[in-house]
């Protein structure tokens, strides 16, 4: 018996469209869902949510304390929400001597409703494989050269807990109001891929 060569995979655009047709045909995918979901994700699950939390923590010591004790409640207090499988938000406080860094070695988990959708590099295999074992080297390659005295704490997201980093406030921004501070908080700084020390006043 001669084995016939398997057909090559169809282009991914076609495969995606095929599943859309099937789910629509079975009455599972309502008209307009794709557009509404995509718009909601782009408009609501944005980095500025976390930015507002960080800016408030920098300017309101009582909020900072509540946030470090119960990140979920601190996010809800600001009007932000979580999907069912994000059952706890833990906020990790950076200091001049401690640097926290978040990863999901098994897939791609992030607190996306708070810090925005994960960037490509976070979901790539290089970051997932290397950052737990070569944390200092990988960060240096990404442009964050930490002094040898800085303690690195890596957090692998493996359950329904989500993490975000509370970055150190840039010294040059001392005394700024929260509204002016929120926009300087980047997604990378809440993942721990960068720090904000360089931000100028």
């Amino acid at each position: 018996m001669v084995a016939t060569a398997p057909k090559p995979p169809a282009p991914i655009e076609q495969r995606t469209a095929a599943l859309e047709i099937v789910l629509k045909g079975k009455g599972i995918l309502p008209d307009g869902f794709v557009e509404e979901f995509t718009e909601h994700a782009e408009d609501e699950w944005v980095t500025s949510n976390g930015g507002q939390m960080v800016a408030r923590a920098w300017t309101d010591p009582e909020y900072r304390e509540r946030m470090l004790k119960d990140g979920t409640a601190a996010a809800r207090e600001m009007g932000f929400d979580f999907p069912e499988h994000h059952r706890q938000l833990v906020v990790l406080e950076n200091t001049p001597d401690i640097h926290n860094l978040i990863v999901c070695t098994l897939c791609s988990c992030t607190a996306y409703t708070i810090i925005g959708a994960a960037p490509d590099w976070y979901k790539d295999m290089e970051y997932r494989a290397r950052v737990v074992r070569e944390s200092r080297t990988a960060l240096r390659e990404m442009g964050l050269d930490l002094p040898a005295t800085t303690e690195i704490r890596v957090w692998d997201t493996t359950a329904d807990t989500r993490y975000m980093v509370l970055p150190v406030q840039p010294p040059a921004t001392a005394g700024w109001p929260a509204e002016k501070l929120a926009p300087i908080v980047t997604q990378d700084s809440m993942i721990g891929a960068s720090r904000l020390d360089e931000v100028k006043g």
Binding site: A17, I28, R130
Partner: peptide
């Protein structure tokens, strides 16, 4: 594994939001 592709480069994959939405409705 090699260097991490950082920072992210913009790319145009129109099927990606559709794939994400199909998973979300499921």
């Amino acid at each position: 594994f090699g260097t991490i592709a950082y920072p992210a480069q913009p790319h145009d994959e129109t099927w990606e939001p559709l794939a994400r939405a199909l998973s979300a409705i499921s």
